[in-house]
Design a protein around this nucleic acid. Structure first.
Lengths: 194, 194
DNA sequence: GTCTATACACCGATAGAC
DNA sequence: GTCTATCGGTGTATAGAC
């Protein structure tokens, strides 16, 4: 499993391409990533990009994976945290999720909205997103909320708060500051004591 | 204010173009509307489209307006309904909104997600969307929920339910059936008796 | 008004030389 | 691996016949 120097070089170039793609996404919008501008940013010919990615869709796919890995790392904090207080766990989870979404609008669009015409994540990429959802369900089960309806209500509540925050008050806290209230509201109808 | 025969003919052609655009959006996706395919669907030359719309963005704009007018019509049912029972009003509003979103995925993307690269609704088009939000806030004020935080919580809750329903169970009821529970949850923390 | 024809600048993708 | 050249497509625009 030793990655040779060639493979390392290849991986480094792939990483550089993805970094430049994120830059373009932040500058001009997620949908405005073009192969030629992307190549220009890296000082290479557009056709050379196809040496590292099979096409534009594969670049979006790799970005989708990177974004979900970042979310997974965010959830790792939950795993390591003290989980004796369900209310605190959920508040922490919701805050982290909303802040994660608001921190990078392009990433939010890529991960949670179907924002690129004609593009869909590959099965492999989607699997990571599913694993993240499963991790969140695991945390909820741990604090005593295990039924499907509650999990669905939680995803609706947190994704709603996040999407409103990102779309209507980016960088602010108009919905972020509703997290405590939302969690209390959620818990009081769930038979879990605070 | 009498619209002459020429103006009527013009309006009819404009409407036909928008109908064809919606068809294309349903067939191939909202972002895949092309001027040449659109013209072909209507049996006209692509250049003739510019006689009726200044460009592709103007077509998206007109579609955005049509979508928001449809939502406004949906809210008219609320205005005409018996509003003595707050719980029933909110359940009806949430159900109608989720069903409205799920009924037309392309319309949902256009109205509530920034799904077309580089496109934004014009100020005139956006005003209708704002008016719809105001109408919803008016209904909530009528049943005794007037504070901003509650209105924000309501938009987060309903938009979250709708987006989850559309994205993860289109045509189904996995989140739609949570509406009663969501409304009860919302009301019990709002000091409004059922 | 609507058509054809043409032009421009861009796009993703590919072929083939080096 | 990287390049140049090219293909067919796009949105947009214009000229000019009917």
């Amino acid at each position: 499993m030793t990655t040779g120097r060639v493979a390392q070089r290849r991986a480094a170039t792939r990483a550089a391409i993805l970094d430049a793609a994120w830059e373009l996404a932040h500058e001009s919008g997620l949908g405005e990533i073009g192969m030629r501008p992307l190549a220009a940013k890296l000082g290479m010919a557009a056709s050379s990009l196809y040496e590292y990615f099979s096409g534009k869709d594969a670049i979006y796919d790799a970005m989708f994976i990177q974004g979900n890995e970042a979310l997974r790392d965010e959830y790792r904090h939950l795993r390591d945290a003290d989980k004796t207080n369900p209310r605190e766990v959920l508040i922490d989870a919701a805050r982290r999720f909303i802040e994660f979404c608001d921190a990078d609008h392009a990433r939010f669009q890529l991960l949670f909205q179907r924002s690129i015409p004609g593009w869909q994540p590959s099965a492999e990429a989607y699997a990571i997103a599913v694993a993240n959802l499963e991790e969140m369900r695991g945390h909820m089960a741990y604090i005593g909320i295990a039924d499907d309806a509650s999990a669905d209500m939680w995803t609706a509540l947190t994704s709603g708060l996040a999407s409103q925050q990102v779309a209507n008050d980016p960088g602010g806290d108009r919905w972020l500051r509703l997290v405590e209230e939302a969690v209390d509201m959620f818990l009081t109808t769930r038979g879990v004591d605070e």
